[in-house]
C-alpha cells in the first residue's frame, strides 16, 4: 500500500491517498458486479433460482445479468463444460474487459465432477483463470451468493498499486490452454472417482496423485 510498482513512494501523501483511492475504487467495483452467466446445465437452474425472488441476487448489486461478455465483470461458469464448448468459454473470457473475475460454480466446472469421460473438460481452470470455486452438485443459491461475496471480499483486498500484476493478460495466450501439458495431466489425472475404484482401493498399484507444484524439492 502506498507504493507503486517500482517500490518508490508516490507523490503527495502516498499511503493515505492510495489506500483511500483503493477503498473507493474497490467499494464501487464490488458493489456493482455485473455477472456474465455462462450457464450450461443443472447449476444454471440454481443460478436462475438465485436471481428469482426468493434469493434475490439484487440485494448484492448483482441483479443485472449481463448476457454480453463485453459489459460483464464476473464470469459465472455454471455447469459442465465439454471440450466442444471449451473454445466458446475461452472466447467469452477473452472478450470480457478488465477488471474481471471468474467463478467456477459446481463440481463439474471445478473438476469435471462425475464426468471423468472423453468429452468433458476436467475443470475450467485448465482454460480460464478461476478466482472462486463453489463446491456442490449443484451448489445451493446460498452457495452461489456466498461465492459472489467471496469475490467481493477478494476485490476489497485488491490494490491499484499492483494492478498491472493482478490484471496482466497476455493477448498472445488467447485461445491457448492456460495450464501447461504437465499441469493439465496432473489436474485431470485419475483422482479416484468411481470409474477408477481399483486404483483407490489399492488393487492396482499407482503413484500418489500430486500436482506438479505440490512436490517437495
Amino acid at each position: 500500500m502506498g507504493v507503486n510498482q517500482s517500490g518508490l513512494p508516490l507523490l503527495g501523501s502516498p499511503a493515505f491517498v492510495t489506500t483511500r483511492l483503493d477503498f473507493v475504487v474497490n467499494w464501487a467495483r464490488r458493489n456493482s458486479l455485473w455477472p456474465m452467466p455462462f450457464g450450461t446445465a443443472c447449476c444454471a437452474i440454481e443460478m436462475m433460482a438465485s436471481a428469482a425472488s426468493n434469493f434475490d441476487l439484487a440485494r448484492f448489486g448483482m441483479e443485472r445479468m449481463s448476457f454480453s461478455p463485453r459489459q460483464a465483470d464476473v464470469l459465472i461458469c455454471a455447469g459442465r463444460v465439454p471440450y466442444k464448448l471449451a473454445p466458446v468459454l475461452r472466447r467469452i473470457w477473452d472478450q470480457m474487459m478488465q477488471p474481471k473475475w471468474c467463478i467456477s460454480m459446481g463440481a463439474c466446472a471445478s473438476s469435471g465432477g462425475v464426468f471423468d469421460v472423453y468429452s468433458m473438460v476436467q475443470g475450467i481452470d485448465t482454460i480460464v483463470p478461476v478466482d472462486v470455486y463453489i463446491p456442490g452438485c449443484p451448489p445451493r443459491p446460498e452457495g452461489l451468493i456466498y461465492g459472489l461475496m467471496m469475490v467481493q471480499e477478494k476485490i476489497r483486498r485488491e490494490s491499484l498499486a499492483n494492478h498491472a500484476e493482478l490484471r496482466a493478460e497476455d493477448p498472445l495466450a488467447a485461445g491457448r490452454p492456460r495450464a501447461g501439458d504437465q499441469e493439465v495431466a496432473d489436474l485431470t489425472g485419475p483422482f479416484g472417482n468411481s470409474t477408477d475404484q481399483n486404483r483407490v482401493s489399492g488393487l492396482v498399484a499407482t503413484d500418489a496423485v500430486r500436482r506438479s507444484e505440490d512436490r517437495l524439492p
Binding site: 471440450y83 473454445p87 472466447r91 472423453y118 490452454p177 501439458d181 495431466a185 489425472g189 470409474t195
Partner: peptide, 22 residues
Amino acid sequence: DFPLRGRFSRAEQTRRALNQDP
C-alpha cells in the same frame, strides 16, 4: 473398444479443443 476417457491424453484433448474454430 473406446476407452472411457478417450484415446488422447487430457493435455492433447484440451489442446485440440481450444484449437477448434468456433
